[in-house]
Lab assay of single mutants.
Amino acid sequence: SASLEDVKTAVLGLLVILQTKLYTLPASHATRVYEMLVSHIQLHYKHSYTLPIASSIRLQAFDFLLLLRADSLHRLGLPNKDGVVRFSPYCVCDYMEPERGSEKKTSGPLSPPTGPPGPAPAGPAVRLGSVPYSLLFRVLLQCLKQESDWKVLKLVLGRLPESLRYKVLIFTSPCSVDQLCSALCSMLSGPKTLERLRGAPEGF
């Protein structure tokens, strides 16, 4: 439990870093931090981490990651405290083949985003970082199938509809809506759902 406290501190630090690096160059920093966060949550489900502190780590990670939004130009952003989304000039939600690297070039400044813009690109060529939603999407499927803490599952179920409104997140990387529907149906009809959940409301 003591070591998990250190892990929790590290994860919180990564969330803060991602919130900053999403809007700064090099964009590969945001890509790497995002991948680290998603990989860490995957390990929770792989090794069945069920301690309360592990659940709190997942809760905080999902609470942040499910706020990711994308505009029509595929640029990622996060809402501010007033709910207004600021889109990044440097990070996009497109999935890119590994051989192309985590970044790609664009020939010049991008068109203005639909929300308040981030800082304008400084040079004639900007390297865009790929932060594909499919990585998070796979972890969300694991959550629906394996999550043991009701608070975490409730958060994910509550945030998913709003995330799905931003269709560009889903359609720019390999996210299977069929698998999502299947996971939701299995969660509702499967007898093991109630068996594994802690803290579920009576009558769920």
Rank of each mutant, 00 (worst) to 15 (best):
K21D: 01
P132Q: 07
L180K: 01
Y49R: 02
V156I: 06
S88M: 02
A183F: 04
L141Y: 05
T31M: 15
S189W: 13
L68V: 08
P161N: 10
V7D: 01
P26I: 00
L14D: 01
R86N: 07
L110S: 15
K46H: 12
K81Y: 11
C185N: 04
K104E: 14
N80K: 09
L184I: 08
S72F: 10
L43I: 14
G199D: 11
V16F: 08
P112V: 13
S163Q: 11
T50L: 08
K81E: 15
K105D: 13
K8T: 07
K105R: 12
V16H: 15
S28V: 08
P26G: 02
V152K: 01
P201G: 13
A2S: 10
S176P: 10
P191N: 15
T114V: 15
R32T: 05
V177N: 01
D149H: 06
L110E: 14
A183Y: 07
L136W: 07
L78I: 14
A2E: 13
L4W: 05
V16Q: 15
L157S: 01
L73H: 11
G83Y: 04
P174W: 04
G118A: 13
A30Q: 02
I41G: 00
L37H: 00
V11L: 05
Q179V: 08
E162I: 13
V84Y: 12
C175M: 03
A2L: 08
A70H: 04
S56D: 14
V156S: 00
K81T: 12
F171K: 12
K105H: 15
L157E: 00
E103D: 15
Q146I: 09
P89A: 07
L67R: 15
L14A: 08
K145C: 13
G199T: 08
L128F: 15
C93M: 03
Y23K: 04
G83D: 06
K145D: 15
E147M: 00
L180M: 09
L180G: 01
G199H: 14
S72G: 08
L140F: 06
L180V: 04
S173F: 02
L144G: 01
R127M: 15
R58E: 00
K154G: 07
G77H: 03
L184M: 05
P26A: 04
P112L: 14
K46T: 14
L67F: 10
S148C: 11
R69I: 02
R159A: 07
T24M: 15
S173G: 05
